[in-house]
Every structure is written in structure tokens, then in C-alpha cells.
Simulated assay, not measured.
Amino acid sequence: MELTTVWFVLIAVLWIGYLVLEGFDFGVGMLTAVLARDEKERRVLLNTIGPVWDGNEVWLIVAGGATFAAFPEWYATLFSGFYLPLFVILVALILRIVALEYRSKRPAMVWKRRCDVGILIGSVVPAVLWGVALANLVRGVPIDADKEFVGSVVDLLNPYALLGGLVTLTVFLVHGAVFVGLKTVGDIRERARVLALRVGVVAAVLATVFVGWTAGRDGDAVVWVAGAVAVACFAAGLAAASARREGWAFVGTALSIAAVVVMLFTALFPDVMVSSLDPSWSLTTTNAASTPYTLTIMTWVAAAFTPLVVGYQAWSYWVFRRRIGTHHIPDDVLAPTS
């Protein structure tokens, strides 16, 4: 296998890691506005992701760095063409980070509510826009003969991409609700399960339409199989949630997200950005790649450090594997009314 293909696959794996792990972070962030009934329950929700959310974002940083180093032409065209939505995502992520980090720094309830709004916005916006961005990569965007993006942000707001945004929004919400059910005890666990099932029906319908649309556009057998696996895993996850098997439910939604990423990257390959103006102007794994020497060095570095990073993150999840409930939250978290 050529190194360009190897790095295309590795970047896809990094996106799988990011969307599976950060996906439930986004879901929990959205659930703080609809699932928690009081401050203690809100703290329970935030504590489910407290030890891991910042580590989950490392996958995005590595994916961006790998794209820059392995496919600089892809990185340049992507960030110039998708500048506005990527900038909005960045601002939303910063807002979310600040709100998560500083929410507990002041006891006033007004301060906490403002931080809650920041967490909500910082979770909803990326959840939608990542779906829009990934769908546009597969659908194609205006790229000229010089491999430059010549469209506008309006070109990115097409029906297929907007459907992709709705799919990621609803699937992440279900993924987050399943994670809450896996990590909590008491009444909040049951409410998370019920919400996952209700939203899951909508997400399943949207995902099925999106998978069918994607597979119908591409026609490749692997794309069809990956899409079918995604739908089946999501349905199995909902069935497990209905049976109160939160662990298997989480596995189902996680595998569903992974299968969708596999479907999208398979539909994209061997292109990395499709030109909607002329297929011959598309960026491919060949014409957008770095030199073989650069890819060789990157491969050795990735082989040495990736197991360490994955091992450390797996260890952190194991350490913080226990369920939590409102009885774990001290009474002094209840802030004054002012």
C-alpha cells in the first residue's frame, strides 16, 4: 500500500476517534439544557465528561496536523474554502472550553447559567457544522484548475450538506444520552434512556436517508456496506438502550458513527476534495500529498507515539469508569441566588 493511501486511512481513523469521543461530549453538552432539572443534576452531567473531554479534543488537533503534514494542498484548499464554517467551529469550541473550565470558578447562579449557555452553543454549533463540512467533501465544492476554491459559503449550504448536519446533531445527542445512561445512576439515568429512544427514532430516519443518498450518489459496494452497517449498529444501539443495556447501546452508537465516517471516506477516495466544476480538477491522495520522504518520517513518528497516546487515553477512561449520581455531589455546589 502506498504511503499516501496509508495516511488517508490514518486521517480517517483520527476522524473516527474524534467524532466517536467528542460526539458524546457534544451530546452531553446539549443535554445540560434539557435533561438536568437542578444544579446537582447539571453537575452530574458535566462530571461524566469532566475527566475526558479535553483529551477527546486532541484527536481533532492531531487530525488537523496530520492533514497539514501529509496533504498540504488538501489542508490549504480546505481551510480557504471552508474558512467561515471552520472559524465558527473554532469560536464555538473556545466558548465551550472557557465555559467548562470557568463555570465552577464563581458561586453566583447567574454566572453558572451564562456558562451553561456557552456550553450549549459550543456543543450544538460544532455538532451541526462538522456534518455539513464532511458532507460537502463528498458532494464536491467549486475548485478550479489551479486547485483553488472559487465558491462561497452559500455553496456549502446545500440540501445534502444540511442533512448531514442534522444527522450529526441528532446522532451526537443520542450518543451523549446513551453515555449519560452508562455513566450515571438514579432518575437521571432513566430520563437519559427515554430521551435517547425518542430522539433516536428521528436520528435513525435522518441517518437512513443520508446513508441512502450517499450510497446512491457513489454506487460503490463498500459504501453501501458501510452505510448498511451504520444503520444496523444504530438500530442495535437503540434496541440495547430500550433493554437498559447501556454498555451495548454505547457500543452500537459508537460503531454507527465509525461506520458513517468509513462510508464518507470510502466514497471520497482516491480524492480528498472533489471539484464540482470538473472531476479532473479534484484534489487526490496523489496530487495533494507531501513528498515520499516526509510521509516516511511521519509514518515512523506515528508508529512510535500513537500507541502511547491511545494507551494513556484508554487508561484514563478506565480510571474514571465509575457511575456517578446526585449523591456524589456535595450540597455546597448550590449557589446563591444572586
Rank of each mutant, 00 (worst) to 15 (best):
1 M>T: 11
2 E>N: 15
2 E>R: 05
4 T>Q: 15
6 V>N: 01
7 W>K: 08
7 W>S: 03
13 V>Q: 02
19 L>C: 02
20 V>D: 01
24 F>G: 02
24 F>K: 04
27 G>L: 09
29 G>Y: 12
31 L>W: 13
31 L>V: 03
31 L>N: 13
33 A>N: 07
33 A>F: 14
36 A>R: 08
41 E>K: 09
44 V>A: 07
44 V>F: 11
49 I>C: 13
50 G>I: 01
51 P>T: 14
52 V>W: 06
52 V>T: 13
53 W>V: 05
55 G>F: 10
59 W>C: 05
60 L>G: 04
61 I>T: 11
63 A>Q: 03
73 E>K: 14
80 S>K: 03
86 L>I: 12
86 L>M: 14
88 V>P: 07
88 V>A: 12
92 A>E: 08
98 V>C: 00
100 L>E: 02
101 E>S: 08
101 E>F: 07
102 Y>C: 02
102 Y>D: 03
107 P>G: 00
108 A>K: 06
109 M>L: 13
110 V>R: 14
110 V>N: 09
111 W>Y: 15
111 W>G: 05
112 K>W: 06
114 R>I: 13
115 C>D: 03
116 D>Q: 14
119 I>Y: 08
119 I>V: 15
120 L>V: 15
123 S>P: 09
130 W>L: 11
130 W>N: 01
135 A>I: 14
137 L>M: 14
141 V>T: 12
149 F>M: 05
150 V>G: 07
151 G>H: 09
151 G>E: 13
153 V>D: 06
154 V>H: 08
156 L>Y: 11
158 N>I: 07
158 N>M: 10
159 P>L: 14
160 Y>T: 14
161 A>V: 04
162 L>E: 11
162 L>I: 15
165 G>V: 07
167 V>M: 04
168 T>H: 07
173 L>P: 01
173 L>I: 04
174 V>R: 00
174 V>G: 05
179 F>S: 00
179 F>A: 03
180 V>A: 10
181 G>Q: 05
188 I>P: 08
192 A>I: 06
196 A>C: 05
197 L>C: 01
198 R>S: 09
211 V>N: 03
213 W>S: 12
215 A>L: 10
216 G>S: 11
221 A>C: 02
224 W>C: 03
227 G>C: 08
230 A>W: 01
231 V>Y: 11
232 A>E: 02
232 A>Y: 06
234 F>Q: 01
235 A>M: 10
236 A>H: 05
237 G>I: 08
239 A>I: 12
240 A>S: 14
240 A>E: 06
241 A>E: 12
245 R>D: 15
253 T>L: 05
255 L>A: 15
259 A>H: 10
259 A>V: 08
261 V>R: 00
265 F>I: 02
265 F>K: 00
265 F>M: 06
266 T>M: 07
269 F>Q: 06
274 V>R: 15
274 V>L: 11
275 S>T: 07
281 W>L: 03
282 S>F: 09
284 T>M: 09
286 T>K: 14
292 P>M: 05
294 T>M: 13
295 L>V: 04
297 I>E: 11
301 V>W: 09
306 T>I: 11
306 T>M: 12
309 V>K: 02
314 A>I: 12
316 S>P: 00
316 S>F: 01
316 S>C: 01
319 V>Q: 04
320 F>D: 12
322 R>F: 06
329 I>A: 02
329 I>D: 10
334 L>G: 00
335 A>T: 13
